[in-house]
């Protein structure tokens, strides 16, 4: 634990108060407040266009919010930046960029390196061992356009991991990945949790929420509910979140929820 957290021993990893985002007068995220408990895997779920990604980006200051406050471990994001790791959506970058997997992972160390200094052997070793962790060691020298979607996602995860942050934001890491990648991501989430890290994941697949996450945030422009999965991930609250777009399918005597 570092100095800042000693000053705020009880400060939550993330506290968002009244955040509102609007594009051209239309509110996309409206007055959202929540607090994340430490050491939990948290799913941010809601229908398409509910503002999930926007809320995530506004929390990180990547899109401007018109109201609201964000506190990370009891301080401003600016001061706590080094404790935050971010995995953007895979589609957000040009994968034809001239670089390889190892180099992308090393980008996660740039924040620690400071200006001008180039990554050295220490960074390379760290990046390599992290690639191993996500099962991508054999692809270290591969040009990134020659990786499959799932492999690209794992490279992005590895880049966030080498940041050695305490609070992670992941924007749809499970979107369009193969089974092997999904498994790798879950194993990784488990490891992060065991290490006491907090992870906020924008998630689409309602059928896996109960299995993967301890805590959920239900969003549809406004925050519908937030809390532990057992008490919050209920048919009633999901109906409220998804409106008519949700079907409850009963199979094998067990209820399954299908969003959109």
């Amino acid at each position: 634990m570092n100095k800042q957290s000693e000053q705020h021993p009880s400060a939550a990893p993330l506290k968002v108060s009244g955040i509102t985002v609007a594009y051209q007068k239309k509110a996309v995220v409206e007055n959202v407040s929540f607090t994340l408990p430490e050491g939990r895997l948290v799913a941010l779920i809601g229908p398409n266009g509910a503002g999930k990604s926007t809320l995530l980006k506004a929390t990180l200051g990547l899109v401007p919010s018109i109201a609201g406050e964000v506190s990370i471990y009891g301080d401003t994001y600016k001061k706590m930046r080094s404790r935050v790791g971010y995995v953007p959506q895979r589609e957000s970058v040009d994968w034809d960029f001239p670089t390889d997997a190892l180099d992308v992972v090393m980008m996660g160390r740039y924040g620690h390196l400071g200006w001008i200094k180039r990554p050295g052997r220490r960074e390379k070793e760290l990046a390599m061992s992290t690639l191993e962790k996500v099962g991508m060691a054999d692809f270290a020298q591969r040009q990134i356009s020659q990786l499959s979607g799932g492999q690209q996602q794992r490279v992005f995860l590895a880049r966030a991991l080498v940041q050695e942050a305490d609070l992670y934001f992941m924007d749809e890491p499970f979107a369009g990945v193969d089974a092997a990648t999904e498994k790798a991501i879950i194993a990784l989430l488990g490891e992060l949790k065991a290490a006491g890290k907090t992870v906020l994941v924008v998630h689409h697949d309602l059928s896996t929420v109960e299995e993967y996450f301890d805590h959920v945030l239900l969003l549809n422009k406004k925050l519908i509910a937030a809390g532990p999965t057992e008490t919050t991930f209920t048919p009633e609250l999901l109906h409220e979140t998804y409106g008519g777009k949700l079907a409850i399918v009963s199979s094998n005597g067990r209820e399954a929820l299908v969003g959109e």
Binding site: L62, Y86, F97, W115
Partner: peptide, 16 residues
């Protein structure tokens, strides 16, 4: 390294 990062992934660059 800074120019590379803002060319490849400006969102992540801002994040760190």
């Amino acid at each position: 390294k800074e120019f590379k990062l803002i060319s490849f992934d400006p969102g992540f660059a801002r994040g760190i």
